[in-house]
């Protein structure tokens, strides 16, 4: 009888632990630092993002370097990031806002995916900006794959954070609503939203939550 109770307790404990770990892994946000309040002007790769028409409809619009700039920092091998891009597609669909869109893709001697591979993850057209060794990410305070920053046409930071509710989960959330609002109204969002994804950097100081 004691053995049976012990085994039963062990089974229940194992199941409960597994359930908890599963929930914890998905719901723990990645590390974040603040992005520059003003868009740095001395970054050539960023300055070059000017002529991207995110959708055919916007192609006819007055799209220029004066339109807002949306940067998505991503690790190309993070399995959580496709959910971010899927959610971004949805936000862009519903906002109808002109935006200069760029995927800032981490690149190093080890992680060196072709640009086209990252571009295929997004339905909208975006410029792929290779981020050698994550220098750009560091500049914008993005430590977790899936972090989004939005600057207005005047260079003011409107939004910073993730746009998925959990790791690898799509769906409406306060974060995605906030980004959509920033895109459509041009108003800055006070709150910084959690990012759920893999760490962009492997350095201990930037590793964030192991995911």
């Amino acid at each position: 009888m004691l053995i049976r109770f012990t085994l039963l307790f062990a089974a229940v404990l194992a199941v409960a632990t597994g359930w908890y770990q599963l929930a914890r892994f998905s719901s723990t946000p990645g590390e974040q630092t603040a992005a520059p309040a003003r868009l740095p002007s001395n970054i050539p790769q960023i300055s070059a993002i000017s002529e991207i028409k995110t959708t055919p409809a916007l192609a006819a619009a007055n799209s220029s370097s004066q339109t807002p700039l949306l940067l998505v920092f991503m690790h190309p091998r993070c399995s959580c990031t496709p959910a971010t891009l899927q959610q971004l597609d949805h936000i862009l669909d519903v906002s109808h806002a002109p935006v200069r869109l760029a995927l800032v893709v981490y690149q190093s001697a080890v992680v060196n995916e072709p640009s086209a591979q990252s571009a295929r993850l997004l339905r909208h057209t975006a410029q792929i900006v290779p981020d050698i060794n994550g220098r750009l990410a560091r500049r914008f305070g993005a430590a977790t794959s899936g972090e989004v920053v939005l600057y207005s046409s005047g260079g003011q930071l409107l939004y910073q954070g993730g746009i998925t509710p959990l790791r690898a989960h799509t769906g409406d959330s306060l974060a995605s609503d906030a980004l959509r609002l920033a895109l459509t109204t041009g108003e800055a969002q006070d709150k910084t939203f959690n990012v759920f994804g893999c760490p962009i950097f492997s350095a201990p100081s930037h590793s964030g939550h192991a995911g």
Binding site: R77, C78, Y106, S108, A109, V111, C198, F201, S202, S207
Partner: peptide, 8 residues
């Protein structure tokens, strides 16, 4: 695999 920078 999960990645953190260059570490998997």
């Amino acid at each position: 695999l999960s990645w953190a920078g260059d570490t998997s």
